[in-house]
Simulated assay, not measured.
Amino acid sequence: MARERIEEVALLRALAFLAIVMQHSIAEYIYRADILQPDAVMLGMLFHFTRFGTPTFVFLSGVILFYNYTDKLDYGSYARKRFKEIFAPFLVWTVIYWATISLVMDYSFADLNTWRELGRQLLKPTYGYHLWFILMIFQFYLLLPWLLKLAAPLRRLATGRPDRAFQRTVWLLVIAAAAYGVLMWFSYYRAGAAASAAGGLWEWLLVYRNMWFVFYFFYFMLGAVCAYGLARFREAAVRSLVWNGLLFIGLYVWIGYELLGLSMQDMKLGASTYLRPITFVLIVSQLLAAYGAVVVLDRHGGVFKKMLAFVGKHSFGGFLAHAYILMFVSFYTRQVELAGYHLPAAVLTFVVVAAASIGLSKAASLVPFGWLLVGSQGRWRRKPTAGTGAGG
């Protein structure tokens, strides 16, 4: 039986993509030596407004995987598909970023160290600094058979008596959120000291904790709840839209106050990290409010919905490409005196990078083997399909 298409996923994916592009555009300007305090303050506040981007991508991955693979999973076929759609573009873009930086820095391709650096980039990307997310989210993909078994209670809750199932699901989420909050407390307040004391492998694991799936498990679990109880989740998100919005505003002001209090000489954006307990609560409230908003938007339609749907459709390729576009934009902006204009420069950069990245993703989706750059939205080798005369 054909499943219902979850239209709001593309809309929410677009918002998450735009938030990430905004974050990276802000980071390009906020630490420049000539920035004035008003611009720095506004960019800092705008930065922590967009922190929901990465966790929302994790949430949406959970929604899609648990929604599509509730029945029997052919792991071999599934793994090949995910490698082709997700990991192959990661490999290609890692090489692109590595080759470009090597050329700009005039590294010799005859030097063995240049090729060793490619190996390091495949394990811990820094040239394509956003590609760490692919390595992290792929851990969820590889562990899906076991995660499906762990999520079986959620599936039973979602398919049981509606009221009782909903109440139990809420309590389960509360318990999971509390456990995740403790993990975030450890991550933000204790992990640094623990890493130094541990040494060896444990030090490495803790230092690079942002790359491990366990530090994002709550968002993935929330995605499973959404997938298994889609209609009820939509209803709850819409009904709580105002309350989640008010909670987000309160936390946004609180964290903004802390951010400004810590930022005496320059902005300390670490106060807005999503591996912090209070930021976790802020992100969840913002994510749920955004979900309710896109459900309402989907019901009413309009030009804005069509625009977000287009961006969401091509957001994976745009995500992979946006740091590359930003690299070329910054090559020119770093040569310009911008004192007093860093805020409008960051916003303009965001518009240019987002538009160019989605345009590049769309263009790549139209050419043969475009999937190597943009994943499943790119063209595969087409074979005529009976009855249509076109590839599917």
Rank of each mutant, 00 (worst) to 15 (best):
G181Y: 04
G181C: 10
V182K: 11
S187T: 07
S187L: 02
Y189C: 02
A193G: 09
A194N: 07
A194C: 11
A195P: 03
S196D: 15
A197D: 10
A197R: 04
A198Q: 01
G199E: 05
L201K: 02
L201H: 00
L201I: 13
E203C: 09
E203R: 12
W204K: 02
W204I: 03
L205T: 06
L205R: 00
L206R: 01
V207A: 13
V207D: 10
Y208Q: 08
R209K: 09
F213E: 15
F213S: 12
Y216F: 06
F217T: 08
F217L: 09
F217N: 09
L222H: 06
G223V: 14
C226M: 15
Y228D: 08
L230V: 10
L230Q: 14
A231N: 15
R232K: 06
F233L: 02
F233M: 05
R234Q: 11
R234H: 11
E235T: 00
E235W: 01
V238E: 13
V238L: 14
R239H: 09
R239A: 15
V242T: 04
V242D: 01
W243H: 06
G245K: 00
L251K: 08
Y252L: 07
V253A: 15
W254H: 10
G256E: 12
G256V: 03
Y257Q: 15
Y257H: 15
E258H: 14
L259K: 01
L259T: 13
L260K: 11
L260H: 14
G261F: 07
Q265F: 15
Q265C: 11
D266S: 14
M267W: 10
M267D: 10
K268S: 15
A271L: 05
S272Y: 10
S272Q: 10
R276E: 09
P277Y: 03
T279R: 02
F280N: 04
F280Y: 01
V281W: 00
V281Q: 01
L282P: 00
I283P: 01
V284M: 07
S285Q: 05
L287I: 06
A289Q: 04
A290N: 07
Y291L: 07
Y291M: 08
Y291H: 09
Y291S: 06
V294G: 12
V295D: 11
V295A: 11
V296H: 07
G301S: 03
V303A: 14
A309R: 05
H314C: 09
F316Q: 13
F316W: 12
G317T: 04
G317L: 01
G318H: 03
G318D: 06
L320C: 01
A321E: 07
